[in-house]
Design a protein around this nucleic acid. Structure first.
Length: 199
DNA sequence: GAAATTTGACCATA
DNA sequence: TATGGTCAAATTTC
């Protein structure tokens, strides 16, 4: 169903705790957690923090793969209409056709056990990220914005970038740190295809 | 004081 | 009947 549902697999970051999956640049608010029978790990349900302000109905489900505990399966449902901006920018439908296609590919068996999934086209959220990531061609993808919970607890796992512009500078630093840390693992590279920067 | 996270319960669908 | 998903209330942190 290409109704805006995107399934992506992202390796757990080694930035302190692998309890939290890489942030995708949006502010998510956890609204529930459920233990899945077929999974040893519970599934977390997130909703866009700007839902109240922008009516953004974007949601995502994060679940750790039973086969790869260090890999998270993030299922995005719906599209963002907030773009994490101070103003409600309306983003047209994010080519659901392409999205629904890649999810099927993601359903494929594990990507090798090291988090080499990819195959999906990070256009849903990442495409919007590029808007505020302009100037950072390397950051064309999910970004982790550990403002206060990066080295503390699993709480505040989502960056509290109020608007996204405030983190513009932090993004570069965070991204740089992340890419440097992940440069040996190519995990990030696996998630964020460098091809995105060629757009 | 406000916002977010956590846990439990309830509802809907298969 | 069982599982998944969502909502609400309480608690914790900033």
């Amino acid at each position: 169903m290409d109704d805006g549902t995107v399934t992506r697999r992202v390796p757990a970051l080694r930035t302190g705790n692998m309890e939290m999956p890489p942030d995708d640049g949006y502010t998510w608010r956890k609204y529930g957690q459920k233990d899945i029978l077929n999974s040893r790990f519970p599934r977390s349900y997130y909703r866009c923090t700007h839902r109240s302000y922008y009516g953004c109905e974007a949601k995502k489900k994060v679940q750790r793969l039973d086969d790869d505990p260090n890999t998270f399966e993030v299922i995005y449902c719906g599209t963002h209409t907030c773009q994490t901006s101070p103003t409600p920018i309306l983003i047209p439908t994010l080519v659901p056709s392409a999205i629904g296609n890649n999810m099927n590919d993601n359903d494929n068996d594990d990507g090798g056990g090291g988090g080499h999934q990819q195959g999906a086209s990070p256009q849903s959220a990442s495409i919007q990220l590029r808007n505020w990531l302009e100037g950072n061609p390397r950051n064309t993808g999910t970004l982790l914005i550990p403002r206060s919970g990066a080295g503390g607890s699993t709480s505040r796992q989502v960056g509290q970038q109020q608007g996204g512009r405030d983190i513009d500078g932090s993004v570069a630093e965070l991204a740089d740190a992340m890419f440097n840390s992940a440069s040996s693992g190519s995990s990030m590279d696996a998630i964020f295809s460098p091809r995105q920067g060629s757009l």
